[in-house]
Amino acid sequence: MKWGGNVLHPTIYLIPLGDFDASHLTIIVENIETQFVFPLKIGSNLAAPSCAVDPVRNQVNSNIILKQLNEVAPSDALKVVGIAGFDLFNPIFSFVFGEAQFEGKCAVVSTYRLHGERDEKKPRRYPPVILRLEKEVVHELGHTFGLRHCSDRSCVMHFSPGLESVDRKSPFYCPVCQELLCWLVARELGRHQALRPT
């Protein structure tokens, strides 16, 4: 692989928010690590600030969470993704699965809407919520690196406003997005390195 961060050890952090059970995350760690070739750490739980909760909508403002994540980001953090169980909204959309700072540092994803409505006729042995979460995390991480939505329906960067399209796509970047990601990551690491005093 082209990047490894021999100087910086840039790390991707997953931060469980509220009472989200961090042990669920271990399953998706591996895919994310292999796709990015950055070490991945799971941080300790972080409580959402009370000002982020909208009592009328009973939802949490994702923009305030993103700000908070930016403030608490460890110094070796290349990217920080908050993982929540509560419902997220942003100031303009009715709900979001997740949100990222485009070409920024932080993203937040929620499992709240990923559960979907239970279909009793179709018992599932494996509730795929964790797999859906994995896709959303990889998707939002892509945005933080500057990837835009992809027209390939199986690509993880495909825009998926509903569960059907989440389930249709894979947790991986298509070859084109992968190639773009390589460039974007190299560019971003270059910038980081340039900022470092030598």
Binding site: N63, P91, F102, F159
Partner: peptide
Amino acid sequence: MVCIALTNWLKEE
């Protein structure tokens, strides 16, 4: 705040 959220998403699209 609305402007930031909306333009951010439009860029992603």
